[in-house]
């Protein structure tokens, strides 16, 4: 199952959610941010090479990290040489091997956001409680709807202790999972490990377990 983690606005925590969700699901996370990759990379061919026809997507899979990852290159030249249209085939290929393919989508509303949504079975929209983030997330929700990627959950990230989820759920028309502001999560992400490894009993970990369970439910519908 291909799951697009998307959100519209930059800096709302899409990569963190994608990475930790893939960890909970024991799936593969694909760094779909072709121009500004931010998942841990390492050595070997990456998604730019795959999209430029220099490597197969399986060659770009890094199975040895804490989470199986398909990293993306970090150069503008690499991003320019890549054909974004090849992304749909690459994701479909991974989908035949892995039970869960989680795509970390970039910010914005261009084709690199739309392409994963065309092949995705479901979308998880990430937003913070700020008005600007919610407005962008609603735009992405519309795009996901046009491209037939069902909205599985809205992730309300960096909430306070008692967030008002009801109005958000009403506006998006989907259930909300909240992830509290968490030092444990921020530290884990900075070190390139999922929070389940560094702080398995934290509230943030609990939120990702809840999100993973919700994604399981979406997949069985």
């Amino acid at each position: 199952m291909i799951l697009a983690v998307t959100g519209g606005k930059g800096g709302v925590g899409k990569s963190t959610v994608a990475y930790n969700l893939a960890a909970e699901l024991d799936g593969v996370v694909v760094d779909g941010d072709l121009a500004m990759a931010d998942l841990p990379a390492g050595h070997g061919p990456d998604l730019h090479d795959v999209l430029a026809g220099r490597a197969t997507v399986h060659e770009a899979v890094r199975p040895d990290g804490p989470v199986t990852t398909v990293p993306c290159g970090r150069t503008l030249a690499g991003a320019r040489a890549a054909d974004p249209r090849a992304l749909t085939d690459a994701l479909a290929t991974l989908d035949r091997t892995y039970r869960w393919v989680v795509v970390d989508s970039p910010a914005g509303l261009r084709a690199d956001v739309g392409l994963p949504l065309t092949v995705a079975d479901a979308a998880v929209v990430v937003t913070t409680p700020s008005t600007a983030a919610i407005a962008d997330a609603l735009r992405v929700r519309e795009l996901a709807r046009e491209l037939d990627a069902g909205l599985c959950r809205v992730v309300l990230n960096r909430t306070g202790s008692d967030p008002a989820t009801r109005p958000v759920a009403d506006r998006f028309g989907a259930p909300v999972v909240t992830i509290p502001d968490s030092d444990a999560l921020a530290t884990a992400q900075r070190h390139g490990v999922p929070v389940r490894q560094t702080a398995p009993d934290s509230r943030a970990r609990g939120a990702f377990e809840e999100l993973a369970a919700a994604v399981y439910d979406c997949s069985s519908v």
Binding site: L34, A35, L76, A79, R80, A82, P84, R85, A86, L87, T88, D89, P106, G108, L109, R110, A111, D112, V113, G114, L115, T118, L143, L147
Partner: peptide, 16 residues
């Protein structure tokens, strides 16, 4: 139906 080419055409090429 939307193909990858349609999506790029509609939303814009994300390449720098």
């Amino acid at each position: 139906s939307e193909s990858a080419t349609d999506v790029v055409r509609d939303l814009g090429d994300p390449s720098p």
